[in-house]
Each structure stands twice: as structure tokens, then as C-alpha cells.
Design a protein around this nucleic acid. Structure first.
Length: 787
DNA sequence: GAGTTTGAAACT
DNA sequence: CAGTTTCAAACTC
């Protein structure tokens, strides 16, 4: 089945061109035309640079107006290959989530001049160069998601409609919009049928602007307006941020066989709920590519997936464990009146179980109002995005269940041009304007996301320092330096959690650094980030709504200080080093000859690459989470203990507080449910923990009492009012008491009492003295001690 | 704090 | 894949 033109195949990575996801035959991906193409990107092939991909349309328009292909029953959205920015009111979050349960493959292809028409026996949807193929109803697994699913036109199609599902029939084809987790929600995803031939050509796609209309999502009150990182092209008109409402459109897709999990593309786009008085456009930047959403005054609204060039952008790549999600948050200012350069952005959607979260924001002006904190649950309870609460934060912390790492998205604040009216400053009162020094210059960035083995990411070296950060959480992706550096192609898919690409030094355009370092950078005033920016202080990072990560809640992970490593020989570039293994930079460690820092970004990138070569799962959490919660957590590989009986922290299972499972190869294991040794240890541990808690509570209480005592007594003393007992133990009283005690001792000597009796007499006298002092406390005058 | 034990990671 | 070595954490004294 000829899906993509040969020219396009050249630009597409293997996995993208994997027709397995599209064609229903059994041909392996390698046999696909794209895969066999000589121009397939490979590790040895030159890295696609910006100039190399100019042929690729910069802007890919996600137009929902494409007419469906009758033969293939595919809905092809119009593809805009020009630089036209679809106007939009504000950032709208579009969650294109391939459903795990969906049986149809999902392919996301870069927009090119060629027609991107996916053909499949099942439903196929192409959105602005992104070919989304979905068949049947996908599994509704998450709340706050709208599943755009095409219903098989065949009468006998096996479609199980869930509550809140709306079926739209554009051009004879039915498309079902489903609000996940919400029954009866009024979700309308309108895909007008223009009657034009779907996906026949780039120009056609462009000429046929689709109206991707997202109406109100009923009952979705929890999905509050997201005010974070609103990127607005300077030329675009921006609506007020107040009216923005985050909406999520999920398109269920079938995961690819080769990948681990479902792919999710989350395109964050704010929807202006208020009157769309003016046509506004917002550019969403996805690793150098801008997703421009056009929102005319009246729906339908055109969503444009475009690329943008930005400089000094940071890309945080945070591979998640499962399902892997790709989260990309980029902050870039779209240069007004500047033609966008075409950048190949092979978004490999072939990787299953990947989720791409794109958050846009522009930083064309230094002063930028920040958006209120917003906690958004994306993709169900297992994926939450916490947006910065107020004011100052341009950091978005992403909580990913099942992962013990925190993902932080850094976005620049919107510029004045990002307001509802073009050229006008944001007047949204809800946003506390806080000066943003990030990304005052134009952002130029292009980061193609390419498939795992052959994928190359082109990350142009930033021209200027900016706060643009793109967080990518995906699997099997390679980070390519701005300059050709083929030997270093870290697999982004399995990069250390939270790994981010940051503008680096040397021949590397970007540095692979963990998202944790975002905080580290903030704390340490990392020059690249902090120098220009107003990187929010750590306090700006929201920590609420934590989800269990790797068996441990994020709060636990956060509260638990990271242990400093003590590496000596590994240079902290081996998995021996916990810091490195956890995707963190060494900070405040005791290591020697440490290379796990920005100063050795090249070495670190190589080390990551080496680790991933040895074990693609190297940076994934070892402790997976079972279906039923903690009890089902188990070590992915299992331990191999021989002497510890798996009852010491040598054992990774025991250390993770889980029992050994069948995957373990341990000898003499005592770490099982009925093990008496284990129970004993558990009891001891519990007792110790209780003791510690009691001690802590006692200390806290004591401190509180002392504090309270001083708080209450100080005014009394100063005011001359009532006196506390300790105030009566004056020097005179103490001396008198001592005299009494000495007198008692002399008495004992005189009567030649034994020492024990003498001591008792003295103690008794001391008791009497205390009683007199106490009794005198209630009197106004000073106590008198008389033996 | 030094030395030992241990098992994962790395290496062959 | 198995055996060995290296390494750093855990543990003991």
C-alpha cells in the first residue's frame, strides 16, 4: 500500500515509515519502502541539521477539515506546509493518545509537501502531517481525555460506544469523540467534510483548512485553565490567558509492536473560552516544531502543527518507564515576520506507548506574566501535569506515576505579544505578572524526533541564552548534537529519567542532563538557565498531587534526600553511581573525579549511550508497579543474592521493600511472604520506625512546648505581670538552697551518719527547698529559702 | 572511620 | 550466555 511518497520516505525515519502500523500485512518494518530507503536515517548517516531539513515544511497544520478518504476510510486533515500560523486564542492542550487497547497502529509523520494519507483497512486520521491511524474504539482508560476515534463505517464494525461518546459523520464517515472517564460529557469534535480529496497533496491540505473544533467538555471541571508557558508567536494574536482552558483531545492509537507502550501525543493548547473576538494564533513548539493552533472568532478552529526555530532552548527528555511517554515542553518565541525554516521533525509515532506533551510558550519579551498553577491530570490518574501556580514559576513539574523521578517542564512566560490582542500585553488579572528574563531573544530551535535506532534529533545550537526547555519523555530516541557528532547519539527513549537537552558547550549543541537538574540548576544558579532567567525558585515547583512513583510516592521521593554518592573510579558515569543511574547530576556528593556534571557533558552523553547500548532498560526503574498497587510491585529483573538471604539492603528487592518473585535468581532467599526471618525483620523495622516516630514526635512536642513557653512567658516577664516558676530561681534562691544543703551535710557529719544517710538527708533537704520555692512561686514577693 | 561483605554492573 | 572482575553500597567492628 503506497502510503507516502518516496520523497517523503527519505525524510522519514524507519520507525515512522514502518508500514506495519499502517499496512495490515505482515511485512516487517524493515521491509517497508521507507525502511529500505537509502536515505533512511542511520547512525552513520549525517545528522540532519537545520539546513538539511529546509525542504520540510516548517509548519504543519493540524486541520481537522480534511475529507475522509472513501476508499481507505481515512480521515486526512489538511496539511499546511507554509508558514501560515493558524490563529488561536490561546494554548489548547490536545492530547492525542493512542489507546493501548486500540488495535490500530498509529503513525505520526512529519508534514511534508507530499500528501500524508494513511490508508488502512481501519480508520485512519491524518493531522497535519501526522498520520494517525486508529481503528475501532480505543480503550477508555483515563479521565480528562477526549478520544477522537473514528468509527468504522462498516455496519458490522465492532464498536463499543462508551458514555459520553459523540459520533460525527463527516462525509459519510463517522468519527466518535469520546470523553474519557466522563460519561455524558458534551464533547464535540467537529471534522467538517470539505469534499476535497483527502490527503492528496500538501497543497491540497493547505488549501483545505480543516476546522478542528473542540467544544465544551462537559463535566470537566477539574481540568482547569492552564496558564503555564503559553507560547505565542510574536506575530500571532493572543487571547487572554484567563479564558484559556486546557482541553485534551485524545486519539486512540494502536501501539506498535516493537514499542513498549502506547504513544501519546499531548499537544497543549489553551482554548479561549471567552468570546473569541479576535482571531488569534498560538504556536506550540514541539522540540523545535511549533504547533500552531488557529482559533478564529468562531469555530471551527484550525490547529496548525508547525515548526519553529528557537535558540537556546533546552530539551528535557524524560523517558518514562511504562507506558513510556514523551513529554516535550518547549518555550520559544516565534519570530514575527520571520519565515520559519523548514525543519525535519520526524515525530516517530511508531513508538508505542509514548506520550508527547507539548507545552508552548513564547518568550519574546523579558517581562512575562506567569500563569496560575494548574494541576492537570493527563492520560488518567497515572499522568499528571502540575503547572506552576502563580506567578513566578515557569517550571512545570510533571508527576509520572510509576516513576520515581520528577519531570519538570520549564517554559518561558508569555510575552506581551502573547496576550489576547496582538501586540498587546496580557491584561489577565489572574496572572501575576512576574518579570521573566528567560528567552528574551528569539528562540531558534529545531529538534526532530526520530525513531530509535535511526532517529536523529537535530538540535541547533542556541543562538542566545533562553529559557526554552523541552522535556521529552520517550523511548528509543536519540539526541543529536547541534553539530554533527554522530558518535554520540544517546537513545532518548531510555535516557535517564528526566534527562533533558540543554544548550551545552563544546561541540555539543545540547547537553543531556536530567530533569532533576532543573531544580539543581535553579538552586545552583546555573548560568545557562539562571543567568537570563527567571527561573523560578525551587519553591515555585509544585509538589502537590504527587503520585506513586516506582512504588514510592513522589512526596516520599522528594522528601527523601538523595544520598550523595561516593564514587571513586567510575567517574560517576557508570550505573554503579546512583546519581548517574537515577539520571541526576552529582551534587553535594563525595565522589572523586566526577564526570557526572555539565562540565563533562560529552563524556556523560557517551556514558549514557554506552549504558543504553548495554541495556536499553538501564535507566528505567527496576521496580515496576503491578496492577493492584504496591503489593504487586516487583523487581523487573529480580535479584541475584546468594549470601544475604535477600534480607539485607544488598538485595534490591529487599531494599525496595518488596518480596522476591519468580524473576529472582537468589539463593537461600528469605524474602518471601511467609518467611519468619522476614517477619521478624519487619517487626523489628516496624518497631524501630515506631520508636523513631515517637522520638520525633516527642522532640517536636518538646520543642513546641519550649517555644510556647517562651512565647507565653516573655510578655509576662517583660510586662511585669505573672512570673513563671523558673523566674523565681534567682541567684539568691540558688545560693540559699545550696546553703541549706551544706547545712544538712554538716548536720549529717556531726551526728556521724553514714554517707548514704547523709546523701539522703541532703536530698530530702533539697526536696524541701524545692517545695518552698514552688510554694513561693504563687506569692507576689520573692521566695525566701529558710533551712 | 577502616575494613569487610555483598551483589549489581561491567567486562571478557 | 556464563564466568570473572570491578565497583560502590551496605555492613561490621
Amino acid at each position: 500500500m503506497d502510503v507516502v511518497s518516496p520523497e517523503l520516505n527519505i525524510l522519514l525515519p524507519d520507525e515512522i515509515m514502518d508500514t506495519e502500523a499502517i499496512v495490515m500485512d505482515d511485512d516487517p518494518p524493515a521491509e517497508s519502502p521507507a525502511a529500505s530507503g537509502q536515505s533512511q536515517p542511520s547512525d552513520d548517516a549525517p545528522i540532519p541539521m537545520e539546513t538539511d531539513v529546509l525542504a520540510v515544511p516548517e509548519i504543519v497544520s493540524l486541520c481537522s477539515d480534511a475529507p475522509p478518504t472513501q476508499r481507505t476510510q481515512a480521515l486526512t486533515t489538511s496539511i499546511t506546509t507554509d508558514s501560515t500560523l493558524c490563529s488561536t486564542t490561546s494554548a489548547t492542550q490536545l492530547l492525542l493518545t493512542p489507546s493501548i487497547a486500540s488495535s490500530s497502529p498509529l503513525t505520526l509523520r512529519p508534514a511534508t509537501a507530499s500528501t500524508l494519507t494513511s490508508t488502512t483497512p481501519k480508520t485512519t486520521t491524518s493531522l497535519g502531517g501526522v498520520s494517525l491511524t486508529s481503528g475501532g474504539l480505543q480503550k477508555l482508560s483515563a479521565n480528562h481525555q477526549i478520544i477522537l476515534n473514528k468509527v468504522a463505517s462498516s455496519p458490522g464494525a465492532d464498536t463499543t460506544r462508551s458514555p459520553g461518546t459523540t459520533t460525527i459523520t463527516p462525509g459519510g464517515q463517522k468519527f466518535m469523540v469520546t470523553a474519557i472517564g466522563k460519561s455524558g460529557q458534551s464533547i464535540v469534535l467537529q471534522l467538517p467534510h470539505t469534499g476535497s480529496k483527502p490527503g492528496s497533496g500538501q497543497g491540497e491540505a493547505k488549501a483545505n483548512p480543516q476546522h478542528f473544533k473542540v467544544l465544551t467538555i462537559g463535566g470537566r471541571t477539574d481540568l482547569k485553565p492552564v496558564m503555564v508557558g503559553q507560547a505565542v508567536s510574536s506575530a500571532s494574536q493572543i487571547s487572554t490567558l484567563q479564558a484559556q482552558q486546557l482541553k485534551t483531545v485524545q486519539i486512540a492509537k494502536k501501539t506498535q509492536v516493537s514499542s513498549a507502550g502506547p504513544i501519546k501525543f499531548i499537544i497543549t493548547k489553551a482554548v479561549n473560552n471567552k468570546g473569541l473576538t479576535a482571531q488569534t494564533s498560538v504556536s506550540n513548539v514541539i522540540t523545535g516544531r511549533v504547533l500552531s493552533t488557529s482559533s478564529p472568532v468562531t469555530p471551527p478552529r484550525t490547529i496548525t502543527l508547525s515548526e519553529t526555530l528557537s535558540s537556546n532552548s533546552k530539551i528535557a527528555i524524560s523517558p518514562l518507564k511504562s507506558p513510556s511517554k514523551l513529554t516535550m515542553v518547549s518555550v520559544a518565541s516565534q519570530v514575527p515576520n520571520s519565515p520559519q525554516k523548514s525543519v525535519s521533525l520526524p515525530l516517530n509515532m511508531a513508538h508505542l506507548g509514548q506520550q508527547i506533551l507539548v507545552q508552548q510558550s513564547t518568550a519574546t519579551s523579558p517581562a512575562k506574566p506567569m500563569k496560575p498553577v494548574q494541576t492537570v491530570t493527563v492520560g488518567g490518574p497515572q499522568f499528571k501535569t502540575i503547572f506552576p501556580l502563580s506567578t513566578s514559576s515557569n517550571v512545570q513539574q510533571i508527576q509520572v506515576p510509576g516513576s520515581r523521578f520528577h519531570y519538570v517542564r520549564l517554559v518561558t512566560a508569555t510575552t506581551g505579544s502573547s496576550t489576547g490582542q496582538a501586540g498587546s500585553h496580557c491584561t489577565n488579572s489572574s496572572m501575576t505578572a512576574k518579570p521573566m528574563v528567560v528567552n528574551t531573544a528569539q528562540v531558534r530551535m529545531s529538534v526532530p524526533i526520530i525513531p530509535a535506532q535511526t532517529m536523529k534529533q537535530v538540535v541547533p545550537k542556541p543562538l542566545t541564552s533562553s529559557g526554552q526547555v523541552l522535556t521529552t519523555q520517550t523511548q528509543q530516541r536519540l539526541i543529536m548534537p547541534a553539530t554533527p557528532l554522530p558518535q554520540i547519539q544517546p537513545n532518548l527513549t531510555n535516557l535517564p529519567p528526566g534527562t533533558m537537552l540543554a544548550p551545552g558547550s563544546g561541540n555539543m549543541g545540547y547537553t543531556v542532563l536530567p530533569a532533576h537538574y532543573v531544580t539543581q540548576l535553579q538552586q545552583s544558579a546555573y548560568v545557562t538557565l539562571a543567568s537570563s532567567s527567571g527561573f523560578p525558585t525551587p519553591t515555585g515547583i509544585q509538589t502537590q498531587a504527587r503520585l506513586p512513583l516506582n512504588g514510592l510516592s513522589t512526596s516520599d521521593a522528594a522528601s527523601r534526600p538523595r544520598k550523595p554518592c561516593n564514587c571513586n573510579k567510575s567517574q560517576c558515569l557508570k550505573l554503579y553511581c546512583d546519581c548517574f543511574a537515577n539520571g541526576e547530576f552529582c551534587q553535594s556528593c563525595n565522589c572523586t573525579n566526577c564526570f557526572n556534571n555539565l562540565e563533562h557533558e560529552t563524556e556523560r552523553a557517551k556514558a549514557i549511550k554506552a549504558c543504553l547500548d548495554r541495556n536499553p532498560e538501564a535507566f528505567k526503574p527496576k521496580i515496576g508497579k503491578g496492577k493492584e498497587g504496591e503489593s504487586d510491585r516487583r523487581h523487573s529483573k529480580g535479584c541475584n543474592c546468594k549470601r544475604s538471604g535477600c534480607l539485607k539492603n544488598y538485595c534490591e528487592c529487599y531494599e525496595a521493600k518488596i518480596m522476591c518473585s519468580s524473576t529472582c535468581k537468589c539463593v537461600g532467599c528469605k524474602n518471601f511472604e511467609e518467611s519468619p526471618e522476614r517477619k521478624t525483620l519487619m517487626h523489628l523495622a516496624d518497631a524501630a520506625e515506631v520508636r523513631v516516630q515517637q522520638q520525633t514526635a516527642a522532640k517536636t512536642k518538646l520543642s513546641s512546648q519550649i517555644s510556647d513557653l517562651f512565647t507565653r512567658t516573655t510578655p509576662a516577664i517583660t510586662s511585669g505581670g505573672g512570673r513563671m516558676p523558673f523566674t523565681f530561681v534567682t541567684k539568691e534562691v540558688a545560693e540559699a538552697t545550696c546553703e541549706c544543703l551544706l547545712e544538712q551535710a554538716e548536720q549529717a557529719e556531726l551526728i556521724q551518719q553514714p554517707q548514704a544517710t547523709a546523701e539522703r538527708m541532703i536530698l530530702e533537704e533539697f526536696g524541701r527547698c524545692l517545695m518552698r520555692i514552688i510554694s513561693s512561686a504563687g506569692k507576689t514577693d520573692c521566695p525566701s529559702i529558710n533551712c
